[in-house]
């Protein structure tokens, strides 16, 4: 079945969708390049906002907006086939950019179809302004409450170059200390990765050459090695292997990375580093350490299950 718009999805749902048991979500199709719900609906170049259907592949969208001098921010080549739906509704792991944010943070508005067929639209706004952020609540829910069908994404001006620097010669926490110092100076890298035991180095890229040079200067002042480059750094966050993510309290980072062969830090949310790791490996390494239990968050799963029932998902 090929559904071509929010209204079609709503009709399909109303006329007896398989509900939450359906494994349906927009997917790119190989055969003729045509994608269900895969259109770029509108591009507002002045505001830097793309209105897309959720089945559009990130790579296809990026290619198009690049031709207009805009960009979603740095994406690894591997992500090209990931759809906006996969990235936002299902929650595929997408590497965040300190400068441009992660894909979730670029969402300005969403349209979704609830399991009872009702179409939910949030206002297109530079920031959420009124009431609870219901759109945000459709992100990351998979299709438990409904289907995400359209999204407005904030774009950034396309950076013509990314200037890389590689920093080595210290434990991850020391390298990340350099990174934090740069942030205090107001310098935000376009991309950052700090590897674990397999690759004990920090790779940063910057939009401005002067920022790269400052990155090198601050590193050397902190007593670690810095090598500036003229080509782009490589992105080792492959999605061929299933990648998982965790938020690690900053003081625990050396301990956690030493247990993860392929773990790497890709950004932070305030006091927690965002770490990507291979899911199979991480299961053992990430669940076990003391920090995993340090969160005091309540269990919301029961509330989420109730909500699912009310909204007709099951």
């Amino acid at each position: 079945m090929r559904l071509v718009g929010t209204e079609a999805v709503a009709l399909w749902v109303r006329s007896g969708s398989p509900g939450a048991t359906a494994a349906w979500h927009p997917k790119p199709e190989d055969t003729d390049g045509a994608l269900p719900l895969g259109a770029l609906v509108d591009l507002d170049e002045n505001s830097g906002v793309a209105h897309v259907q959720s089945g559009i592949a990130l790579g296809r969208l990026e290619r198009f907006v690049r031709s207009r001098g805009l960009s979603l921010g740095p994406l690894s080549a591997d992500l090209c086939r990931t759809t906006v739906y996969d990235a936002l509704a299902v929650g595929s792991t997408i590497r965040p950019s300190p400068r441009f944010g992660d894909l979730r943070s670029t969402v300005l508005a969403v349209t979704g179809v609830l399991h009872d067929g009702r179409v939910v639209r949030t206002e297109v706004a530079p920031r959420r302004a009124t009431g609870s952020d219901l759109g945000r609540f459709l992100l990351g829910c998979g299709h438990r409450f409904g289907y995400l069908t359209e999204v407005y994404l904030r774009l950034s001006p396309l950076a013509n170059h990314l200037f890389p620097v590689t920093v080595t010669g210290g434990p991850p926490s020391a390298l990340l200390g350099v990174y934090s110092q740069l942030e205090d100076l107001g310098v935000r890298a376009a991309t950052m990765t700090v590897g674990g035991s397999r690759d004990p180095s920090m790779h940063l890229t910057f939009v401005h050459e002067a920022e790269r040079d400052l990155g090198a200067e601050v590193s050397r002042a902190a007593g670690v090695e810095a090598t500036v480059g003229i080509s782009l750094g490589t992105d080792r966050c492959s999605v061929d292997r299933p990648i998982a993510e965790a938020l690690v309290p900053k003081p625990m980072i050396d301990a956690v990375l030493s247990r993860l062969k392929n773990g790497r830090v890709v950004g932070h949310v305030a006091d927690r580093w965002i770490v990507f790791f291979e899911a199979a490996e991480g299961d053992a390494a990430v669940r076990e350490p003391a920090w995993a239990a340090s969160t005091e968050a309540s269990d919301f799963s029961q509330l989420e299950a109730q909500l699912e029932v009310i909204l007709g998902g099951r």
Binding site: S132, D133, R136, F137, G140, L247, A270, T295, A297
Partner: peptide
């Protein structure tokens, strides 16, 4: 109730 940290995978109760 105490919510999960912003940025955690899954639903964002903070923004609700």
């Amino acid at each position: 109730r105490r919510t999960e940290r912003t940025g955690s995978p899954g639903l964002d109760w903070n923004q609700l």
